[in-house]
Design a binder for these strands. Structure first.
Lengths: 145, 145
DNA sequence: CTTTCTGCAAAAGGTTTGCAGTTAG
DNA sequence: CTAACTGCAAACCTTTTGCAGAAAG
């Protein structure tokens, strides 16, 4: 519960209500660690004997993403809880293609390099999406049978 | 037609057949310049009086992507024809959020920096997805009314 | 000719919408 | 209390599958 406390405060401070569905979705996101789809979340809750309508889950995720409390990982089409604070550049991901393990990071230097490249093309970059897929150390180890 | 000639050669040299549907999809991709969905492609062909089943378009796009002749742009969920050759790092995109204009580029230095970051997390990065959304010079100009 | 490819029909999945009833504050 | 939120039903859009017929080489 303490893990989601910060997020609940953000909800409250922005004038959104702290409801049971929102708490449940946040709880699942903090527990799973890897990207999950709305239906994954419903399934996980189901196994705990809890229930949420899928539409509600969609709407909660949309809200969380709009507040930067969660992110959609485009590469795998799932959602993760944001593990970073504000500032220091765009949030980026490394995803293990085998087990789905994910790490979030930010790197201001990368953002600046990318902005420079965009400028060469006459673009003003606003938002960077950067994900790379690879293989994590655990899966690497278990692959060398 | 000359624009798609190279792509057709790749198809042929890899043992795939050069068919009418494949030529049509490639032609649309070279003409539109911005990311299009399978149904967008069907619609564009329809306006020319041509027809392709949507399933065929899905399959053609899947093939083209597997051969790196096209890419799926995750940010907008559409497909573009690849405008780069092989080598020099992963293919990356800048997309205008207003008009959909897109530029593809590759930057080996960025790839290496990202690989180093992945390594810190114990990951071996294999594929980089990097897209940034921004605003292109034309839209920027027309925005300053 | 034969293998690959396309079209069709249908199903399966994912996402969105409007509205009535519920609940947080 | 009342504005914000959730659940439900239904629609909608996207993607996939299996199979029979067409076409490339």
């Amino acid at each position: 519960m303490s893990q989601i406390h910060g997020a609940l405060q953000v909800l409250h401070s922005r004038g959104y209500r702290v409801t049971e569905p929102r708490k449940r979705v946040l709880k699942v996101l903090t527990e799973v660690q890897s990207p999950v789809s709305p239906y994954d979340i419903q399934e996980i809750l189901h196994r705990k004997g809890e229930y949420l309508n899928h539409v509600t889950i969609y709407r909660v995720l949309e809200l969380l993403c709009s507040l930067n409390l969660a992110h959609k990982v485009l590469l795998v089409g799932g959602f993760v809880k944001c593990t970073l604070g504000e500032g220091g550049g765009c949030h980026r991901f490394v995803v293990c293609r085998q087990c789905g393990a994910i790490r979030e990071y930010a790197d201001k230097a990368l953002c600046e390099e990318e902005n420079a490249i965009a400028q060469e093309f006459g673009f003003r970059a606003e938002q960077h999406f950067s994900e790379f897929s690879g293989i994590c150390s655990e899966c690497m180890a278990s692959a060398m049978f």
